[in-house]
Amino acid sequence: MRRRLVVQAVFWIATYIALAIAPLVLLKLGEVPPGREYWRELSVALGFAGLTMLTLQFALTARFRSIKAPYGADVIYHFHRQISLVTFGLILAHPLLLFIFSPATLGLLNVLAAPWRARLGVLAVLLLLGLILTSVWRKRLAIDYSAWRIWHGLLATGIVALAMGHIILARHYLNQPWKQAIWVAYGLFWAGLLVYVRIIKPILLLRRPFVVERVTPERGAAWTLVLRPDGNPGFGFMPGQFAWLTAGRSPFAEAEHPFSFSSSAADTGRIAFTIKELGDFTRTIKDLRPGQRVYVDGPFGHFSVDRQPHAAEYVFIAGGVGITPIMSMLRTLADRVDVRPLLLFFASKDWDSVTFREELETLIPRLNLKIVHVLEKPPAQWDGERGFLSQAVLEKHLPKEWDRNAIEVFLCGPPPMMAAVEQALLKLGVPLGDIHSERFNLV
């Protein structure tokens, strides 16, 4: 299993690199125009490579299970963000090189007098700058997630269309009809992908609705949303996975949000999500009424004990509502009467906000489970661990001898906690390959 994932991981990285550099190879095929100045050719090469990488951004977020499997969805979104900055740098270098080495080209910025190829290019770069700023500073600019998501898709499509127009009108390298045809086909392919993700997929979801069975409050300002399939068999999932939830309206509503399942994967009749009140959408979960229709696109994610079935022992580390996917795994293991040793570190603010506190106690006799609660603000007579989940606390309770591949660690919590715990685990000699993590703030 692990080897297959490594092969998949390397394959997709190689594919990405091959696709990113493909245009440079393509430009050298057929009738190649005579060479111009070095900096001009470099500028054009960076423009073409940047445009291709821009289009690959669509593939990264199109929820292809096979692409995400080896890395995890959170890492794919992180890469999407990081590579977008690299891509923007490459694209920006395209006009900057022209302006530096041929200042006369600055005249192309005068959109009133400039030819259409320049107008389209300038507009594409400006919109790209807007796209990146509204994404990096979405929270700071207080842009609503749902609205941002619609504009992000529309802007991205518009930018690629403008850039395609720019290279076709510039004509220099696309000097033969077949070369233009390849680029147009390439652009249409990505447009088609977008149509699939945003239109065809929702139509498929429309035929597979769920209804709200109940909404119950949990400790730690969280709500559990129990759903059952409405007139369809629903779907199975691996414990620890997540799905995109569209509540209310239709699956076209675009108000999709990713949440982890909290229910047991062995319970095929219904699914449950446990959601903490964090943002605008999560605050409305409690307002959902029994019988209301919702749409669920899933399952996704690799964060599951079922992906590491060979382990002799599992260690779970949760922070706050990060317990959700781990709860799904614990409930599933209990339903399967799994007897392997399980250790749960659970960091919470205080004793009253320990989500699933009572149910976790009931799982202890059903499983070979030890729970280490770590409280930031413990009650007066607390004799357990206190403060943050430190390296010392981990070391005190973790098995002394680590057998590679025999113990698998699952970590889910707020980003600062995850970063700290991951560092601590590595210092304690836990192999990186045995640490599996999922960040719950994907976007």
């Binding site: 690199i17 070095y38 470099l42 890492v75 992180h78 890469f79 990081q82 590579i83 690299v86 490459l90």
Partner: peptide, 30 residues
Amino acid sequence: MRQRVSTWLAICIGLLVLILALAFAWMQTA
């Protein structure tokens, strides 16, 4: 950690593309 690896991967891919673009321009003008 995996996120840091992906950040470095993004930087490396950017550098690789830059090197290939430099090579492309060199081939075009040589």
